[in-house]
């Protein structure tokens, strides 16, 4: 290590701070800087994105909620997220459970195919779907958006759920059988309660990913826009400070979801 770094290290050490800690702090600052800027500017009174801000105001928020485009964007995003979550949770759970419990010779291939969409950029999935819907002469709508979201989020759901299922001790089911439980009872009383939290937690990942998705949605969107696309159109047209407000709301939403997941799902046995 160069002498400069060694000297810096020593000076920090004297204050009881490690070089690593400093780095971590800086990096975290870097990660949250744009979000902080966003939040700050959302309260800026002036319409100009100059720094520093001149006054505080809630006008952008008022404007946001008054705009029907934004509120319908929020609703559209919610709708897509929930439907995607439901589909992925059903389909994905079945797949993950089968592969985990009853491994067969082709299960590696199956897992590979399920995870494949994650290896591609959203661009390719998006244009493939656009082309596909075009060939089928299907009108683009929230439904087509949902298809894209399902394909996009399924691999992540599967990964997270599989990881948690791996921690499930099969001896618990044996114990239930030993106690006298038939297959249905065993599933109802032991298996389901134990994997349910894992499924819900993985489903929340899907919700978060879908809520945020842009690159695939861009190609499969019809008349109704989801929230990220609303932001896009506003940002494109002009320098629109209300975008900061929308952005802040998205951050807030994300915070809530993550906290909620933590509080209610954290206590799980898988």
């Amino acid at each position: 290590m160069s002498t400069a770094v060694i000297r810096l290290r020593r000076r920090l050490r004297r204050r009881g701070i490690g070089l690593l800690r400093v780095y971590v702090a800086l990096l975290l600052l870097f990660l949250f800087l744009p979000l902080a800027v966003l939040i700050v500017f959302s309260f800026s009174a002036s319409g100009q994105l100059r720094f520093p801000i001149t006054g505080l105001s809630l006008r952008w928020y008022r404007e946001v909620f008054a705009t029907s485009a934004v509120t319908s964007g929020i609703l559209a995003s919610l709708e897509v997220a929930v439907v995607t979550g439901a589909i992925v949770a059903t389909v994905g759970t079945l797949a993950a459970v089968v592969v985990q419990r009853y491994p067969f010779r082709g299960s590696g291939v199956v897992t590979g195919v399920i995870l494949a969409p994650a290896a591609l950029p959203g661009l390719v999935i998006g244009i493939a779907l656009l082309n596909f819907f075009g060939d089928l002469h299907l009108t683009l709508s929230l439904m087509t958006v949902t298809v894209g979201h399902v394909i996009y989020t399924l691999p992540y759901f599967y990964l997270v759920l599989s990881a948690r299922l791996r921690r499930f001790d099969p001896a618990l089911e044996e114990a239930a059988t030993d106690m006298g439980a038939g297959p249905v009872q065993r599933f109802r009383l032991v298996t389901a309660p134990l994997i349910a939290p894992a499924i819900v937690a993985s489903a929340f990942v899907v919700l978060a990913l879908s809520w945020d998705e842009f690159q695939i949605t861009f190609f499969t969107i019809g008349d109704q826009s989801t929230l990220p696309l609303v932001i896009w159109s506003r940002a494109r047209l002009s320098i629109d400070p209300s975008v900061n407000a929308i952005g802040t709301l998205m951050v807030a939403g994300s915070l809530l979801v993550v906290l909620f997941t933590r509080r209610f799902i954290a206590e799980s046995y898988t």
Binding site: P34, L35, F214, P228, I231, A235, G247, V251, S254
Partner: peptide, 12 residues
């Protein structure tokens, strides 16, 4: 920070 919104972050 991850889920705060792809487009939002670019805009920021």
């Amino acid at each position: 920070s991850l889920f705060a919104g792809y487009i939002v972050k670019i805009y920021a």
